[in-house]
Structures are given as C-alpha cells and as structure tokens.
Design a protein around this nucleic acid. Structure first.
Length: 773
DNA sequence: TAGATCTGTGTTTTT
DNA sequence: CACAGATCTA
C-alpha cells in the first residue's frame, strides 16, 4: 500500500507523512509539488481519513482532474470519487447552490461571466446619466471586482470615507452608487458574478455559524495548491474553514505569483506562518523538470526581485543546450522562425507536436504564430483567449437556456429578447428597464404583468413581448419533462437562431451553425456522462453550472498539437521545447505594468514562470517592429533578456546594433546574403556554440554589412507603391519591368523581368530598387 | 425598428 | 485591428 512513498525524495516525503497540523510547502518550479499533494491525499486516506473529509483546492479544473486521476491510480477510483477537489470558484459555487436560500438567492442562480457583468454595469452607468468617458465600464468593473475581493461590500464602502474620497479623487464620486445598483441588480436577477462566488461564501460562513460548523466538520483536511495566487477573499474562506481542526496544507511558490492583477496577495504565503500555530515549513528545491542551463538562467532572473522568500532551486539534470535568442524583423517573421524551428526540431529529433509550446504575454500575439504554423501544416491548438462558450452564437443559445432556468437573469434576457430580431427595439427595452427599476421587479416579471403596468407601448409591441415570454415559458415546461439535449435542440430551432444563421449563408454563418451543433453534441455527451454519476441528474441547470466555470483548458482533444497559450495559462504545465515570443519592452514587460517596482517584479516572476516551463530547450524571440493596434511599430528588446546571465544564452544575431534601429535602416540589405549575418544556425542536439559574440567577432560581422548610402536609393514608400508595369532599376540586375505584384504590406513581392537577370521574384522589403517610371 | 456604416477608442494577464 | 456605440437610411 505504501510502496508509493519510495517514489518520493526525502524533502517530498516529509510533508506527505505529516498527517495533522498546519504546514506550508514552498515548492520551487518543477520540484514535484503536485506529486506531494497527490501522495499526501493518498497517504491521508491510507491512514483512515474519509475522502468526504478532504477538501483540495486547485487553481484550474484541469489540475483538479489530473490530481483526481492520479489519486485514483493509487487508491482506486471508487474512493477517489468522493474527494472534494476543484477550483475555489467551482467548489464554492456548489456549496452556495446548496445554501442559497439562506442568502436570499434561488438555488438555480445564474453565474455572470465578465461580459455579462460589464454589460450590466455599462447599462447602469447609462441609466444613471453618467458620463461614459469618465465612468468607463471596464474600469468600474475592475474597481468593483477588487472591492469584492477585499470583502468591501456596498455597506462597508459607504462606511469608509477613505474609499469614497479615493474614488472622488479619481473623478468618480458616484462609484459607490454604481456599485450599489450593480449589486442590487445582480441580486434581483438571481445572479452572482465570479467574485460573488467567493464573497458570498464568506458571507455565508460569517453570518451562519451553524453552516460554518457544518463545513468545518466536513472538511477536516484542507489542501490548497498555488497558495501564492489566493486573494483576500479566498484567504478568509480557507482560514475560516480550517480554523477548527487546523489541518491545513498549503503549497506554493512565491516566485510564481502572477495574479496580483486580480487581487492575489503574495502576503498570504509570506505570512502563512503567522496565521496558524506550529506551522511546519517544508521546502522543495530540487528541480526534476529542466536542464541546468534553464534552471540557472531562471534563477539569475528571479534574483533581481527584492520581495521573495529565500530558496535555492537546483537540479541534477544535465547541462543541456543554452537558451537560444533570436531577433526577427516583424511578428510575421517571428512566427515563421518559430514554425520552421519547430519543424526542424521535429524532424531532427523525431518529436511529436505535443513537445512544443509557444508562450506569449498577450492573446493577440497568437495570430502571427497561427498563420505561420498553418502554412507549415503543423497542427496547433490555441488555449484560452475566447473560449468556446464565450463565442457569440454559443452565448446566444446559452442565454436562452439560462433564461428558461432563471427568467430573472437580466443579462441573458437583454441579450436574446431581440435576437433573432423580433421587433423589440431599444426604446422598448429602455421602457421595460425603467418599469423594472421602479417596481423592483425583473424585466421578465414586468412583461408577465403588462396588464397591471402602463408601459406606454403600442399593442403590436405588447404582443411581441408577450409572445417572447410565452416562448420562454414553453421552454421551461418542456425542460420539466425532457432531457437537456432535447430542450437545447428545441431552443436552437424554435427561437429561429439557426434559421437566422442559415439565411446569412456566409462561411462565418456556416461555422457558427457548426459550433451550435457542437454545443448540442456537448450537451448530449454531458447528459450521458452525468447519468453515470450517482448524485447528478444530467439536468440543464447542471450543464449551465458546469459551463459557467469551464475554461478552455479543460477540454481534452486527444490529438497531437503544438500548444499556444499565454504565460499565465501555462503555469503548472511543462514542455520539452518552449518558445517565448515577443520578448520586447512594452509588451513583456507589459507597458501597463512598468510603473511600480511591484508590478515590474510580477512581470519578472511571469518571465520566470515562462522559462521554467521548458524541460530541454528554451527559445526567446523578439522583433524590431510588430503590428500593434493595426499599425507597424518599432520594438525594443526586453530588459529581461539582458537580465539573464549571458553565459546561459546563445544569440543568433550580433548584439551591437539592435537598440532603436528603425526598420528602414536595418532592412534594406540589398542583395547581401542575410544568412551570413547569423553567427550560428541552431540545431537542437548539437553542442551549443559560444555565448555572446566577442567584440572581435562583432567587428567582423559588421564588416559584412555594406555601408548603405541613401542617395539614389528608392525609399521604402516608393517601392511599396510599385505597380504592375512600372520600370525599375536594380543595382545588379539592371533595368526591368514589373510584371506582377503579390502579397501585402511587409510581404509584398514583385515579379520583375530584368534585362540582365531575366524574371526574378523579389521581396520589396529587401529589394534595392530604384523606380524609373 | 433593422441593418448598414461610420467613428472612436483602447489593449495584459483570468476564474 | 476589433469591438462597442453612434448615426444614418429604408
């Protein structure tokens, strides 16, 4: 039974074997913390702890699922099934459904996603007649979110003059009022936003001692993964639940705290030892994941941070190749480099696509990578970004489904009351909203009671409203007798959603119909799957609950693909080959996070996370110019590259001239063979070449570059304007005539018939051409 | 009222 | 560029 203990090293075994009490495990990157958590749970169960009494909180659903799987392998699946394991949000949503009535919520409350919340806030700002340029809904939303995460309720807000003053100072004196209206509206709609799931859990545990006791007794052993990323609200929940038995084990790494922007408080982990009696501290410092080069390079970065717990991450793994750094002209070329590098590595080392990950700071960067991978026919998958359930057509269907479960759901109703178009316009909706606010009812209820409410709408509109409500009601009735799939299928057809898309006929419309079909299939699968679980019914409400908190990461595809994701999403994952792209100032570190030391340190931790995902080889790339908000802008290499000790890096480009070189100077190489400028061509497996090139090497490299004189040289603008039929002159091929223009922007090519060279295809960006006519 | 078209505005990261 | 909101037209 306990043979698995032999699979742990001494440092890992110690926290596994401490059955009771409070403990903190500071686990360096790749040091096997998941292993410690799973084995600890298995050990507790082997010592007779009932799985019903174990609560394990993870950061993602995926992590929970994986841990459960691993535990099943050790203790058997029937036992593992009873563990409470999941994210804070999903576990406590479940608990809140059970206890909802105590807080005045229906048990079928809706969970608002960010978009729902933001739209509602936007509507409230408009209703209140406030200036939308001062009260920007996104800002207001994040302000409210941070209040909630700090447990500042509306009441607490108005009792705290400092907060009011702070908001008044930032020209938003009515923020408290918006907050109040927003909370009221959510309550009336029977809806909780993401932050409410934590805030209301706190409220529940605070206001109802008997509920607190019930769950304290239930969760005798609590484990929290990624503790460094907990916010105040989560911290208090954990504190309250563990207070009685104090059997709490938190695992984390302060060096990997990357969620301060959503309220994560690094002090939760730094101060843990003060929060409980006799806290045992364990450190996992041996990294099993990465090569020495990667581990040491990562250490050399994180050293630059001032706020940190002391720990030394080390590895017994081989040195491995150095980190390859490359500079590219544009984001398009960056993509092409990454794609061909992946292609070469795959061929040379017989690797599958799953060995590679491309990590970036912002979702928008995925585009260039996608394009390049697609051209190379390398299968890939984008994680995160817009999740399937957030797509317009999917959210439309889901909104109908939400509405038939909870007709008070304002966000859902507003979304679909006139989609597909049924003649209920903005004016009518405004009237409904006013009526709803004055009578303290939901919009749906207002329509239900049109006989008693003078809405000042004509009879046609009145009919349309009644028809809509009746349609939703008929769906509700159907839902009582039919399974979730049948209901969803009926909704998709009867509402005219699918018809509307069919009518549209564009490829996008077709894709949307396919997505809806996929959703319906998903619901069918869900219904089938739930039937096998004892405590589930496969109801529509269950499906919606599942979907509200599902993320893109959770979906398994089973095919072999290169993974593309933000660095945030990559936390906890590992890949043999990792490409970190967009290593540029203003992008990484983000321009929004360079103002304070702590923000910059978080960016640095993010870089640390990125690098430590790599097992064998890491690549860093940056560009000289990249498309941002639709325009090509100059970029500058990230300071983080310089922060890595040079001996861990292998530059593919000379390092003398990269700062602030505008495109036009560096790119017009004429017919100089660009590859000569590259010092080495990287091939994984071959011994890594020297570090930064020496001064002497640099001088040599510079000589390769011809002195460009700009006189007589066509400016890039002229060349880009080139049209078919133009006469041009090339420095070597002589005069010629433009036959054809291909491609756009940076990739624009011209087919030219030269007197001395015949027909050539030239990339205009590089071609040294003079426009003659 | 619907739908097309224009304008403006902002963009980090996520449960 | 991408999306939200405003404005215009039928």
């Amino acid at each position: 039974m306990e043979s698995y203990l032999a699979e742990l090293n001494d440092a890992q075994r110690a926290p596994v074997l401490q059955k009771d009490g409070a403990m903190i495990v500071i686990a360096g990157a790749g040091s096997g913390k998941t292993r410690v958590l799973t084995y600890r749970i298995a050990y507790l169960m082997s010592k007779g702890v009932d799985p019903f009494n174990i609560l394990s909180l993870t950061f993602t659903n995926k992590a929970a699922k994986e841990m459960k799987k691993r535990i099943s392998q050790i203790v058997g699946s029937s036992e593992a099934k009873n563990l409470w394991m999941g994210t804070f949000h999903s576990i406590f949503a479940k608990m809140l459904r059970f206890e909802a009535d105590k807080l005045g919520y229906p048990s079928n409350f809706t969970i608002y996603d960010t978009q729902d919340s933001q739209r509602l806030i936007s509507a409230i700002i408009k209703e209140m007649g406030l200036d939308k340029d001062i009260y920007k809904y996104k800002q207001v939303y994040s302000r409210i979110s941070s209040y909630k995460n700090s447990l500042i309720t509306v009441k607490a807000y108005f009792q705290n003059p400092e907060l009011k003053e702070a908001d008044a100072m930032s020209k938003k004196p009515r923020l408290g009022d918006i907050y109040k209206n927003y909370v009221d509206r959510c309550f009336k709609a029977g809806a909780m936003d993401f932050d409410d799931l934590l805030l209301k859990t706190n409220e529940l545990l605070n206001r109802f001692p008997e509920v607190l006791q019930k769950y304290q007794n239930r969760f005798r052993y609590i484990l929290v993964d990624e503790y460094q990323d907990t916010n105040h609200s989560q911290y208090l929940i954990v504190k309250a639940l563990s207070d009685k038995f104090q059997n709490i084990c938190v695992v984390g790494d302060d060096a990997q705290s990357i969620y301060a922007f959503r309220g994560a408080n690094i002090n939760n982990i730094l101060n843990f030892q003060k929060d409980y009696d006799n806290v045992q501290l364990y450190r996992l410092e041996q990294n099993y994941r990465s090569t020495k080069n990667i581990v040491n390079a990562a250490n050399s970065i994180i050293e630059k941070n001032k706020t940190k717990l002391e720990k030394v991450v080390w590895t017994a793994n081989e040195d491995g190749p150095k980190i390859i750094v490359n500079r590219l002209l544009t984001d398009g070329e960056e993509g092409r480099f990454v794609a061909s590098s992946i292609f070469e590595n795959k061929m040379q080392n017989q690797l599958d696509n799953g060995s590679f990950a491309i990590l970036y700071r912002t979702n928008a960067q995925s585009r260039a990578m996608e394009d390049a991978l697609r051209k190379r026919e390398i299968p890939y998958r984008i994680y995160g970004g817009l999740s399937f359930y957030q797509r317009k057509e999917i959210k439309d269907v889901l909104s109908y489904l939400r509405l038939l479960i909870n007709p008070n759901d304002e966000a859902a109703l507003k979304r679909v009351i006139n989609y597909p178009a049924r003649g209920i316009g903005q004016t009518t909706i405004d009237k409904l909203t006013i009526a709803a606010n004055t009578y303290g009812k939901s919009i749906f209820e207002v329509i239900e009671n049109l006989d008693h409410i003078d809405l000042k709408v004509n009879s046609g509109t009145r009919n349309k409203l009644t028809n809509f409500v009746n349609m939703i009601k008929s769906f509700s009735i159907l839902n009582e007798n039919a399974d979730a799939f049948t209901v969803a299928d009926t909704v998709a057809k009867k509402t005219g959603l699918v018809q509307d898309l069919k009518k549209d006929g564009t490829p996008e419309g077709v894709a949307k119909i396919e997505n809806i079909e996929e959703l319906l299939n998903g619901i069918r699968d869900f219904v089938e799957g739930q039937k096998e679980l004892a405590d589930a019914t496969g109801s529509l409400a269950e499906f919606l609950e599942d979907v509200a908190l599902a993320t893109d990461m959770d979906k398994e595809t089973g095919d072999d693909h290169v993974a593309l994701m933000t660095i945030h999403l990559a936390k906890g994952l590992e890949f043999p080959y990792v490409y970190i792209v967009g290593m540029e100032e203003d992008l990484f570190p983000s321009g929004m996070s360079m103002n304070t030391r702590s923000e910059l340190e978080e960016e640095r931790r993010l870089f640390y996370v990125a690098l430590t995902r790599a097992e064998k080889q890491a690549y860093l790339t940056y560009t000289q110019s990249r498309y941002r908000w639709g325009k090509l802008v100059d970029a500058e290499p990230s300071r983080f590259i310089d922060e890595i000790e040079g001996k861990f890096l292998d530059y593919m480009i000379p390092q003398d001239d990269y700062k602030y070189k505008p495109l036009i100077d560096t790119d017009i190489f004429g017919d100089v063979d660009k590859s000569k400028l590259r010092q080495t061509k990287p091939t994984a497996g071959s011994p890594p070449p020297a570090h930064k090139p020496s001064e002497e090497q640099l001088r040599k490299l510079r000589k390769l570059r011809p002195a460009l004189d700009h006189t007589g040289q066509a400016s890039i603008k002229d060349v880009v304007k080139l049209e078919e039929g133009n006469e041009v002159e090339h420095i070597r091929f002589g005069k010629g005539k433009v036959l054809k223009i291909d491609g756009i922007g940076q990739d624009k090519k011209a087919e030219i018939n030269f007197e001395n060279g015949g027909i050539k295809k030239l990339l205009l960006r590089f071609a040294k051409l003079k426009l003659l006519s």
